[in-house]
Write a protein that binds this DNA or RNA. Sequence first.
RNA 1: GCUAGGGUAGGGUAGCUGGACAUCCUAUAGGACUGUGGAUCCUUUGACCCGGGUUCGAGUCCCGGCCCUGGCCCCA
Length: 407
Amino acid sequence: MIQRPRGTRDFFPDELEERRGVEETLRRAVSQWGYREVATPEFEHLELFTIRSGEGIIGEMYAFQDKGGRDLSLRPELTAPVLRMYVNEAKVLNRPVRWYYFGDCFRYERPQKGRYRQFWQFGIELIGADTAQADAEVIAVGSDLLTSAGVTFELRVGHLSMMKSLIADLEPDTQKKVMACLDKRDYGALQTVLPEGDLAERLTALIESRNLDDAFAITGSIPEEARIRETFALLDAHEVPYTQYFGIARGLDYYTGCVFEAFAENLGAENQIMGGGAYRLAHLFGGEDTPSCGFAIGFDRVMVSRGDQGVPRPLTVALVVTPEGRLAGIGAAAAFRRAGVRTLADLTGKSLSAQLSYAAKHADYAVVIGGREAESGMVTLRDLGSGDQETVSVEEAVLRVVSGGSC
RNA sequence: GCUAGGGUAGGGUAGCUGGACAUCCUAUAGGACUGUGGAUCCUUUGACCCGGGUUCGAGUCCCGGCCCUGGCCCCA
């Protein structure tokens, strides 16, 4: 027997319907902010991803050569492809551009709770606006999406300039190490990287601070102060719940300012459910240096965090026929479907008893058509909840089912 | 890459101090019910992850692999 590849999943109808429902909710919510969907290829030139994230990530990618010897990779994320698309084809668009995406990505990693080798990301990119309003809108959209998806989460918002202002005098290599320690809140490692002076203490105090005045007291005045204060004021106006968190580093060099992350409950070690910030990537792909801001939501983690909530079955009718009623049944079924009712036809030719047994498990009403009904042009509508039934015309049966009445 | 636990019908399980046709629930198919369902009863279908090894004999013990569930690392 052939097994699924490691880290992949099959989805049965119950689970898939639930996923589609959440997906629909997210699409509706993001659409109300004016974001429109874009789609990019499942695979890209390998270089697209290494430019953004470095050669080190090749080991975690599904990279391969095609028959023409091109180095390609299944996409491990969607920000780079979307920005590539923007640079390639959308230079003439009015800015700002508001785009969203929903698609599967692939990473060769050890699977664990909320982490798979094929996973789905839902995200937005706001391209070409470099203001506090832009940063605040992106964060507000993220908060809105997670809330509408039914997730309970903690949103942390920070700004890289505050940490960077404190470590600006260090060697670039040391800066990286320091930021990695702070991102993980690994104070022990921080002591070994920064053995002397009070810098470690000031950094620690900065990332422990939970309001702007305390934070700026540590950093002193920095050029970005006004914008940072404005961003938080706008977030308050958006009524977005958040905590200030100046320890967020997000690991990558191209983040320029505002950064944010959300963490959700019911997840294990992998509890980050959204991450994003302001960045400059377009110039790496050959475009103009364009300010952008965006985030990605881990869709699978949204589903894990929500838990099994289930999706109610849509109103369903099952057609139960004898051989004499089969032809009349086709027309009756069509009438129900035209009225928007899911209608199951019998395909087995089994006894009425067996057909009803099946119908009882999968439908709300049974429409029985045997020899008597076929002859009179009527149908017997049976309410499978109450067991009541009545013989009526097809039109009357449709009307009763649609109106939700009993027989 | 490291690490803990696990893998027995479609789903959930017992057996795991080696020994006869591998247990039970559920599901599936059919029947009791010649035009009326989810209950009940009967019958049916259906499994020891794969490969080696130890042994007279392996679901059971040993080794390797694959996969699952967590944790570490990483996290674009």
